[in-house]
Amino acid sequence: MAGSGKAHLRNTADPVLRVEDLVVEYGAANGEKVQAVSGVSLDIIAGETLSVVGESGCGKSTLAKGILQLIATASGSVVINGQEITKLKGNELREARPNMQMIFQDSISSLDPHMKVSALIEQPLKVWNRGTEAERKAKVNDLLQSVGLDPEVVSQRKPTEFSGGQCQRISIARALALEPKLLVCDEPVSSLDVSIQAQILNILQDMKERYGLSLLFISHDLSVVRTISDRIVVMYLGKICEVATPATLSEKPRHHYTHALVSSVPIPDPTKKNRRAVLQGEPPSSTNPPSGCRFRTRCPAATELCANEEPQLRDMGGGDFVACHHPRA
């Protein structure tokens, strides 16, 4: 992968989110620093859905948390709605939070089991003193309806009485209560059944249109993100390997890692078998990443150049960018 570079950033006047050279470090047991996110840049314009895909440990969730300042970032900048938030502290950062909300993979554990559904969704409104009690109640009912839950039936119940899919709907309603500009979704459907996944993805699409949201969608599953994304970022070991439209990514991925990811997706069609370029092995440790291109140890096209020089993101036309010395044709 990857590589560094900012060729894929757009010169829009006011992107909803602009991240430059973001670095997030964790302390390892031996006192060394591990860069989980190693100089990532990306931007999201109004109404856009940007997805970040990659394997476990590639840094995609850390990136999401770093962007929202839920964990400390080592360097780099994050600008949301024109406001640089990496330097904000305490109350200033708190004031910026209504604009950026998040939903999590495990929706059941992200909801307080002792609170009723109506109280859960009302809480952000109460905290920020939005509206009168009657207005808040109307807003809660409105939000519940928009995610496909009947307020009459669900308001007085507690999260434990609901299935995973229903809990994810409740978290979406709660995240939207303050009408954020940016919604970060960290693997929102990966613990759900396929039939329920489709329901949640459709709700997110509806909400995006209704509230004019921009989405940052984190997932390990390319087939899930490609239907809902405008742009997809592929990450490997803390860096970006490819930025492309969903069509490019599934039809002619340029990075060898993306190609392996695409061909690993199981196809629900018994007649299309044996098309796979199964990637051998597992990603190397990020405590001691390979020199040059980080993917070179598993890459079929790696040469000496890949070991010596880190590839930079290059413009391939049509809004596609790849960080590879020897991209696939």
Binding site: S163, V194, S195, I196, Q197, A198, Q199, L201, N202, Q205, D221, L222, S223, V224, R226, T227, P246, A247, S250, V262, V265, I267, P268
Partner: peptide, 24 residues
């Protein structure tokens, strides 16, 4: 049939709504 259609797959047209199975 509904189960097959709700699977997100790489060869589906982009931008299509995923056919979800309603109810429980």
């Amino acid at each position: 049939q509904a189960l097959m259609e709700s699977i997100p797959r790489l060869d589906r047209k982009i931008g299509d709504r995923l056919p979800a199975i309603g109810g429980t």
